[in-house]
Simulated assay, not measured.
Amino acid sequence: MARNNRDAPYRIPFGPRGIKWFRDQSFSSIDNLIRDELITRLDHFTEQITVIDQQLEELRVSFPQVEALLNIHGIGLYTTLVIVAEQGEVERFRSAKQVGAYAGLTSKVNLSGGHCYYGSITRQGPPWLRWVLTGVAIHVIRRDVPLKRFYTRIRKRSGAKKARVAVPRKLAEISWKRLFRWQTEHSVQPV
């Protein structure tokens, strides 16, 4: 489309109307082949996403505690399942701060001769949990007012990089608290 100086007239160019408009466009013969190939790929990946979404819905039944996390802004079913799977049993941790350390989102501490040096994050623990939490943090601070205030406070005090790590750590703590509360309310016994 860029080679032919055309813009989609729709805000979501790959929605149903945008795809129909895209199919109706006439380009050169090579560009038409490329367009048809891209539409075929998009249809294939859409079908694959539908299959995976169905499998995630089936997993949702096996893990009823995901309901405790689904109402956090920016957290979907896939993210919730990753958090539940990576954190494991909530009784393993005595406090929420231990979950942040388990996820590898706390800073390294080097004590030497009465001085305390704080370094980068430890990156210990499951990388998938860290990856999911940092990805969700970007979306959460846009809508969740308390976490946005937390992010802003840390950013003003320590900079944007540290704030981008502090929010996922806080999300790890919040998710553990919600899962712990859900488990005590539903009195689920570990298997």
Rank of each mutant, 00 (worst) to 15 (best):
D144E: 12
P64Q: 06
E58Q: 13
L133D: 08
A8H: 13
R178I: 05
K148N: 13
I174E: 12
I154Q: 12
P146W: 04
R3C: 00
Q98Y: 03
V136C: 12
P168I: 04
E185T: 10
T40N: 15
N110M: 07
A8D: 14
T80E: 00
G100W: 10
L69C: 08
L147S: 05
L111Q: 13
G125V: 08
F45Y: 13
L42Y: 15
N32F: 14
Y117C: 02
A8E: 07
K162G: 03
G100Y: 12
P146I: 03
E58N: 08
G114Y: 03
W21T: 13
L38V: 07
A85L: 01
I34E: 10
N71R: 09
G15K: 04
S112Q: 02
K108L: 11
W131F: 08
R149D: 13
F93S: 08
K20E: 15
V99W: 06
V109P: 03
E67D: 14
S29D: 15
S112I: 01
R181L: 05
G159C: 05
W182F: 07
L133H: 07
Q25D: 10
I174K: 03
P127Y: 08
V99A: 08
N71K: 06
H186R: 12
K97A: 03
R11Y: 11
S62G: 04
L69G: 04
R155C: 12
E67Q: 10
I138K: 14
F22M: 13
I49K: 11
I75H: 06
V188I: 10
I19W: 12
S29A: 15
E86M: 11
E185D: 14
W128A: 11
K20D: 12
S120Q: 08
V167M: 04
T80C: 10
A85E: 04
S26Q: 15
R143Q: 12
N5F: 06
T134A: 02
A137W: 05
S29H: 14
V84F: 02
T152R: 05
A85P: 02
V90W: 00
T152F: 00
A96Q: 11
H186D: 01
G113P: 02
Q55F: 02
I83P: 00
S62Y: 06
Q55N: 03
